[in-house]
Simulated scan of single mutants.
Amino acid sequence: MLIALPACQSSPNSLYQQVGEQAGLEKLVDAFINQIGKDDVVFAYFKQTNVSHFRAGFIAHMCDVLDGPCTYEGDSMAQIHTGMQINEHDFNHTVDLLIAAMSETGIAHPIQNKILARLAPMRAQIIKI
């Protein structure tokens, strides 16, 4: 007999669960924000950003992307990054900061690769140069 999970729960063994659910996701996003804050190159893209707004939006976005109990209803990646003129080097460097944050928070490399695979299709919406 199969039991359907309510829509508000994440699926068993989802990436959301594997990162530690809400607490783990918040820890990851906080580590990522700290990585950005310490980086002269990437911080330039965020210097006018409302950090608490970014944090809440990125947590919701990642929760949705990782099959958590969230539905991201914010702007698209294209809308968010319009006018930022992000080049490939800086995009890749930001990914490196995310990887560092994942390592810092104890996310295993196979899980990191799965997360990056989920985010990779958004690359074309972000790089503008």
Rank of each mutant, 00 (worst) to 15 (best):
3 I>K: 14
44 A>L: 05
70 C>M: 07
41 V>I: 12
115 I>Y: 01
123 R>H: 14
108 A>F: 07
70 C>A: 12
82 T>R: 13
116 L>Y: 11
21 E>K: 15
76 S>K: 07
81 H>F: 10
14 S>G: 06
12 P>F: 14
52 S>F: 04
66 L>A: 03
66 L>F: 14
70 C>Y: 12
3 I>M: 13
129 I>K: 14
49 T>I: 10
38 K>P: 00
36 I>W: 03
114 K>A: 15
33 I>Y: 13
81 H>L: 06
43 F>L: 06
84 M>N: 03
3 I>R: 14
113 N>T: 11
101 A>R: 06
40 D>N: 13
126 I>A: 09
9 Q>I: 09
17 Q>P: 02
87 N>V: 11
40 D>H: 09
29 V>L: 10
102 M>V: 04
32 F>D: 00
51 V>W: 12
93 H>S: 00
14 S>E: 00
94 T>I: 02
31 A>F: 10
83 G>C: 04
57 G>F: 09
78 A>T: 08
122 M>E: 03
26 E>I: 03
109 H>C: 03
75 D>K: 15
38 K>N: 12
90 D>C: 04
59 I>W: 08
98 L>G: 04
44 A>H: 05
90 D>H: 14
10 S>V: 02
67 D>N: 12
37 G>H: 08
21 E>C: 12
103 S>L: 15
85 Q>R: 13
59 I>C: 07
94 T>D: 00
21 E>T: 13
55 R>Y: 04
116 L>Q: 02
27 K>S: 11
63 C>I: 03
48 Q>A: 11
59 I>A: 06
7 A>G: 01
25 L>S: 08
8 C>E: 12
93 H>G: 01
112 Q>A: 10
99 I>Y: 08
44 A>W: 00
86 I>G: 01
16 Y>I: 06
26 E>Q: 15
118 R>E: 01
46 F>P: 01
34 N>K: 15
60 A>N: 13
15 L>W: 05
121 P>R: 09
35 Q>C: 05
12 P>H: 11
59 I>D: 01
65 V>C: 09
96 D>Q: 14
67 D>R: 10
63 C>V: 03
126 I>S: 07
17 Q>G: 15
3 I>G: 06
121 P>L: 08
104 E>F: 11
28 L>P: 02
62 M>F: 14
89 H>R: 15
85 Q>F: 13
62 M>P: 06
60 A>C: 08
9 Q>P: 00
125 Q>V: 06
115 I>P: 04
66 L>N: 02
25 L>Q: 03
104 E>P: 04
125 Q>I: 05
27 K>T: 09
38 K>L: 09
71 T>K: 15
2 L>V: 13
66 L>C: 05
10 S>C: 10
22 Q>V: 08
